[in-house]
Design a binder for these strands. Structure first.
Length: 405
RNA sequence: GCCGGGGUGGGGUAGUGGUCAUCCUGCGGGACUGUGGAUCCCGCGAGCCGGGUUCGAAUCCCGGCCCCGGCCCCA
């Protein structure tokens, strides 16, 4: 069907785009205020880049294709890997830490459902050069700051530490470790017990952990972790410790965090991040950490909390109506002046004035400029549609009129 | 890939086998010669696709596609 959308994709109406840009602009502003700088990478990469990191199974969940000369390519399924690729190939000799951010669309071949699309948007940051608790604290504070400024209320920050789990499992190979981590995330503890793991007691103590920072000291003495929690407490960021976070975080290696909206359904994670190691992928060690918001879900969550009502362009709107097409040239001239200050359209459908008025009112236009015979004397009519008053002014006085609005 | 619920003009809807295509809204125009969302009138515009049952299918059956939600998964 020529006019249907591809499954899992969306069109965005003018109203939706207004909300979208509003949210995006706030994110962008906060990111920049923290000193992050924007980057953009290609929409597609060599398949190999992602194969190295995630293995063959990603092909099933990605848009993979060959171009005309047989290159094996992939539409980016996430942006951290391309960002690091960019860093390695072009940004390495910049002063560290590097603070980078991006707002990009990504693609995954999954069954669409609430909050999950095949083309979706990520707004994320990466800190390259360190994975110190100070850096992670900055990330979480930053993410929290964005949500606060957007006015989101019903969310929960959960912090875990994959290093603790991986330490206990360090005697096993990586493949087996990942299998165990997956079971931990799914809370399939019975199955877990059937493996009779060497440090089973210790492991269960960790994944069943419930409590706050002070209780944590009883089961581990990870200094970085404690430092981070101290920083967050000092910054009054509310969080929950959840040491069983393990899902889908293959490249994460240390502290991780997730933010969930309590107002969303099955797909309720609106943010995820942590300390990762992509170093092996490129042949040397890179200390880095980062996070990304799922923009689509963030929008959904904000919508559920009624935070996107009455978002609009505050700029006043003008419409120029001409009684005869011979005044069109004058209309362009006048529009040029108005547009220095406000939004201005010209009536181009040769409507009758009555219909033009209806159009203006329906589109919430503030002022109607009417060009009739008076224009021969350089006089125009300006009708204030909101207050229903009308006056004649000379073109020479138009600019003053606009300045005083 | 699996499960459940759906698919009728641009948006929202009515009809459960029989002349079928309803109503609201939208859009374009007219009544109205240069001024307000009104009113009246005219016009535009639809049963997801393919197959089957039937004299006859929007309606019943099968398959596919897509949407909504859930599972798996979420790098």
């Amino acid at each position: 069907m020529i006019i249907s959308r591809v499954k899992g994709t969306r069109d965005f109406s003018p109203e939706e785009m207004r909300k979208w840009r509003y949210v995006e602009n706030i994110i962008r502003k906060i990111f920049e205020r923290y000193g992050y700088e924007e980057i953009l990478t290609p929409t597609f990469e060599y398949l190999e880049l992602f194969l190295k990191k995630s293995g063959d199974e990603i092909i099933q969940h990605a848009y993979v294709f060959e171009d005309k000369s047989g290159r094996k390519l992939i539409l980016r399924p996430e942006e951290t890997t391309p960002a690091i690729r960019f860093y390695v190939s072009g940004l390495r000799n910049r002063p560290h830490p590097l603070r980078l951010y991006y707002i990009v669309n990504c693609f995954r071949y999954e069954e669409p459902q609430a909050g999950r699309y095949r083309e979706f948007w990520q707004a994320g940051v990466e800190i390259i050069g360190t994975n110190s608790p100070e850096a992670v604290a900055e990330l979480i504070i930053l993410a929290n700051n964005v949500l606060e400024d957007l006015g989101l209320k019903n969310y929960e920050i959960r912090i875990g530490n994959i290093k603790l789990l991986k330490n206990i499992l360090k005697e096993y190979d990586e493949k087996f470790q990942n299998k165990i981590l997956r079971l931990i995330d799914k809370k399939e503890f019975d199955k877990l017990k059937s493996f009779k793991l060497k440090n089973e007691d210790e492991l269960f103590r960790i994944i069943n952990f419930k409590g706050d920072k002070n209780d944590l000291i009883n089961i581990c003495n990870d200094e970085d972790f404690i430092n981070l929690l101290d920083y967050l407490d000092d910054a009054s960021v509310k969080y929950k410790i959840d040491l069983s976070i393990a899902r889908g975080l293959d490249y994460y290696s240390g502290i991780v965090f997730e933010i969930h909206s309590k107002k969303l359904g099955a797909q309720k994670q609106i943010c995820g991040g942590g300390v990762y190691s992509l170093g092996e992928l490129f042949g040397f060690d890179i200390k880095a950490c980062g996070f990304a918001f799922g923009l689509d879900r963030l929008l959904l969550a904000l919508e559920k909390e009624n935070r996107l009502k009455n978002i609009g362009n505050e700029d006043k709107r003008f419409l120029i109506f001409i009684f005869d097409k011979k005044y069109f040239r004058k209309a362009i001239e006048i529009a040029k002046i108005v547009r220095r200050y406000f939004r201005c359209e010209i009536e181009i459908m040769r409507k009758k004035i009555k219909r033009a008025l209806e159009y203006a009112i329906n589109k919430n236009i503030d002022f109607l400029i009417i060009l009739g015979e008076e224009i021969e004397r350089d006089v125009i009519l300006i009708k204030d549609l909101k207050r229903n008053i009308q006056k004649e002014i000379h073109i020479n006085n138009l600019e003053d009129f606009l300045k005083n609005l």
